[in-house]
């Protein structure tokens, strides 16, 4: 049981008033540990909202430094942070937002040699990365180590997300074959409306909070697809693939670093 100061009661009052949260819910949030892999378009808003909510421990993993082109959407960083390590910039923003939150800065690239150890210290993982080899690695590691996580991606005016909890379909159930480099356009090539990270990243944060609180329906077994041009959200039911190499019974998945083979496929 956490001893709430008057200041904490004031800070989290809008949470505590909710029947689904209350004092016990806010205690759960303050005791929770969420890891965000990638402090970019998706990870930035996710981290900020989780910090505002009072998630007690927020891990942020990213090896990069802040680039000017990031600022159009990675709102956790500002102009003065260009050139600074992303995890440090993110940590500073979070500390200023909420002193109740402890940020653990993992200044590294997540790979098959370190991911198991890193995720072991967290209750929920947010995939905010931008490349498929690491997205598949995150999927496999979370399934193997029974860690719930939120998968998401954005491009141009579209975004999508699904949530994995043990027993639900994993990302590989839906997308069994990793596309080679060049087969799928990146934000750098095709562009992205800045707010897409905010819309989808905040949904990822909402899923993390719902998981922590144990309320509502998660996007488990559902791919939520959003198109900002039409303002249409679609929730598509997806099933576990019986022969999924990651999550089917007896799959025996091993964590490897997927080197996306370079190809000369035309982009679609």
């Amino acid at each position: 049981m956490i001893d709430f100061s008057d200041e904490m009661l004031e800070r989290y009052s809008r949470h505590i008033l909710l029947k689904e949260v209350g004092v016990s819910g806010q205690e759960k949030i303050l005791s929770a540990r969420v890891l965000i892999i990638g402090a970019g378009g998706l990870g930035a808003p996710a981290a900020m909202y989780l910090a505002a909510a009072g998630v007690g421990t927020i891990g942020i993993a990213d090896a990069d430094v802040v680039d000017l082109s990031n600022l159009q959407r990675q709102i956790i960083h500002s102009t003065a942070d260009v050139g600074k390590a992303k995890v440090l910039s993110a940590q500073e923003t979070v500390n200023a937002m909420n002193p109740d939150v402890k940020v653990v800065a993992h200044r590294l690239f997540v790979d098959s040699s370190n991911i198991a150890e890193i995720i072991s210290g967290y209750d929920f993982i947010v995939d905010g990365t931008d490349n498929f080899p690491v997205k598949y690695l995150i999927n496999d590691a979370c399934v193997l180590h029974k860690k719930p996580f939120s998968h998401a991606g954005i491009i141009q005016f579209k975004g999508q997300t699904l949530t994995y909890v043990p027993g639900a379909p994993c990302f590989r159930c839906v997308f069994p074959n990793m596309p080679p480099e060049g087969a799928v356009p990146t934000c750098r090539q095709a562009g992205v409306l800045g707010v897409m990270g905010g819309i989808i990243g905040t949904i990822q944060a909402a899923e993390a909070l719902k998981y922590i609180l144990g309320v509502g329906e998660l996007l488990a077994g559902k791919l939520l697809v959003f198109d900002a041009l039409t303002m249409n959200f679609r929730k598509i039911n997806v099933n576990k693939a019986k022969t999924c190499p990651t999550c089917s019974e007896g799959a025996g998945i091993k964590l490897i670093d997927y080197a996306a083979p370079v190809c000369d496929l035309k982009k679609h």
Binding site: G40, G41, T129, F132, G153, I155, Q160, V184, L223
Partner: peptide, 11 residues
């Protein structure tokens, strides 16, 4: 029928 596409960006 659903056509589901990869969306890789996050950064």
């Amino acid at each position: 029928v659903e056509f589901l596409y990869f969306m890789g960006g996050g950064r």
